[in-house]
Simulated assay, not measured.
Amino acid sequence: MVLFFITMLIATLVEMRRLKTAQKYELVDKPNATVPMSVWWLVLQYVLCGLFEVFTVVVGIQDLFCNQVPKECRSCTLP
């Protein structure tokens, strides 16, 4: 949960930056306007979100399947 908190904190900081840029160019009340900001500002939060999801969700699901599924239903056996 701490990892997701860090990701949301980064997303919040990027959104604050986007809003400041929109205010600077007076684009806040124009829904069809494009804010002149690089898409690279989003890369860090999406990479972290994907990385943290792999560590939490995928590992948890694999552990669940290995512990809860009967041995007869598994496609490969664990040593």
Rank of each mutant, 00 (worst) to 15 (best):
V2E: 08
V2K: 02
V2Q: 04
L3Y: 06
L3T: 08
L3A: 12
F4R: 02
F5I: 13
M8Y: 14
M8R: 05
R17I: 01
R17D: 15
R18V: 00
R18L: 02
L19I: 13
L19M: 12
L19D: 05
K20F: 09
T21M: 07
T21S: 01
Y25K: 12
Y25G: 07
Y25T: 13
E26V: 08
L27Y: 07
D29L: 15
D29R: 11
K30F: 03
K30A: 09
K30Y: 07
P31L: 04
P31I: 04
N32K: 05
T34K: 02
V35N: 13
P36N: 00
P36T: 00
P36G: 00
W41K: 11
L42A: 05
L42R: 08
L42W: 10
L44H: 13
L44R: 08
L44P: 15
L44M: 15
Q45A: 14
Q45K: 12
Q45Y: 12
Y46G: 09
L48W: 03
L48A: 06
G50V: 00
G50N: 03
L51F: 11
L51R: 15
F52D: 14
E53H: 07
E53G: 03
E53N: 07
V54H: 09
F55R: 08
F55N: 07
F55I: 04
V57W: 01
V58C: 10
V58Q: 13
G60N: 09
Q62H: 02
L64P: 10
L64Q: 03
L64A: 07
F65T: 01
F65L: 15
C66V: 01
V69P: 01
V69E: 01
K71Q: 04
E72F: 03
C73E: 14
C73P: 11
C73L: 09
R74W: 05
S75F: 15
S75Y: 13
S75D: 13
